[in-house]
């Protein structure tokens, strides 16, 4: 087992200010960035704040930016860096910092609450839901989300424009709308809620310019743009801009 000393720069501070602090720290084979942050806590900076839980890429807690890339620290191997490379670790930029590497991600919970929940179908009790696998597999892909909020953090719509936070739900919650809109049993339509139109009108789907950074940073490799955001945009087009779809729905209605 070999070890070496790495140069780390870790952002330390809080909402009042802060900056990058230098550390020389031991690195061993097989370690990830979160291991090094823990070593810093244990040996050099006992008050260094970092949020973490599972260390297995499943809880979504240790989101940060490593050399400028939004990443899970527990899933970023030290072996991807050269031994003489400085590794810079900063908190997610899009959210208010609480302290050091810990940010306040409550923006995301606010946005989550704005998305209308699953509407149960009439006449089918809980526990009696039956769905064909091919009908539900699209929604299931989105259920892999671990809510690390790296997609929300990297999306330039809110990362570079704080003022858009009010109007824009972000990729994670537009994906949630897509998940429900594609769900075979969701009965929102029967209650008068068109989720695709609502995504555009109420949740800022139009702000998305499909530059795919959300997909690039997703640690669960969910195809957010191709499978959620673009299909949602297409569904909005169905509702608002496609004359053939409009004509087809008129003819069908007449035939009923």
């Amino acid at each position: 087992m070999s070890s070496y000393t790495a140069h780390f720069k870790v952002w330390r501070g809080d909402a009042d200010g802060g900056g990058l602090q230098d550390f020389q720290v031991e690195v061993n084979d097989g370690e990830v960035v979160l291991d090094i942050i823990h070593r810093l806590q244990a040996t050099q900076a006992s008050d260094l704040a970092v949020r973490w839980n599972c260390k297995a890429g499943k809880c979504g807690s240790c989101s940060a930016e490593v050399n400028g890339h939004p990443r899970l620290m527990c899933m970023t191997r030290m072996s991807v860096f050269r031994r003489d490379e400085t590794v810079t670790v900063t908190p997610m930029r899009t959210f208010p910092v609480i302290r050091d590497l810990v940010t306040d991600v409550s923006f995301n919970y606010t946005k989550a609450r704005e998305v209308p929940a699953f509407v149960p179908p009439k006449g089918v009790a809980a526990g009696e839901y039956r769905m064909a696998q091919q009908d539900v597999e699209r929604s299931q892909e989105f259920r892999k989300c671990i809510e690390c909020f790296l997609c929300q953090n990297t999306c330039h719509v809110v990362r570079d424009h704080e003022e858009n936070k009010e109007a824009f739900a972000g990729p994670r919650f537009l994906m949630r709308i897509a998940e429900l809109d594609m769900h075979p049993l969701d009965a929102a339509e029967e209650t008068g809620l068109n989720r695709a139109a609502s995504a555009q009108e109420d949740h800022g789907l139009g702000y998305c310019n499909i530059t795919k950074c959300c997909t690039d940073v997703c640690p669960e490799n969910i195809h957010i743009t191709d499978n959620a955001l673009i299909p949602l945009k297409e569904r909005a087009v169905d509702r608002k801009y496609d004359p053939l779809v409009w004509l087809g729905s008129k003819i069908r209605r007449r035939g009923q």
């Binding site: 720069k9 952002w11 330390r12 501070g13 809080d14 909402a15 009042d16 200010g17 802060g18 900056g19 990058l20 602090q21 230098d22 550390f23 050099q44 900076a45 008050d47 704040a49 900063t90 908190p91 930029r93 899009t94 959210f95 208010p96 910092v97 302290r99 940010t103 306040d104 704080e162």
Partner: peptide, 26 residues
């Protein structure tokens, strides 16, 4: 800092606080 803690080694690239409480990274 609001937490009452101070870095044990000097901060090398400091800058002022950013709007909306984001981390101060220029």
């Amino acid at each position: 800092m609001a937490t009452g803690t101070t870095p044990t080694t000097p901060v090398t690239e400091a800058s002022g606080g950013r709007a909306h409480g984001r981390a101060a990274i220029a």
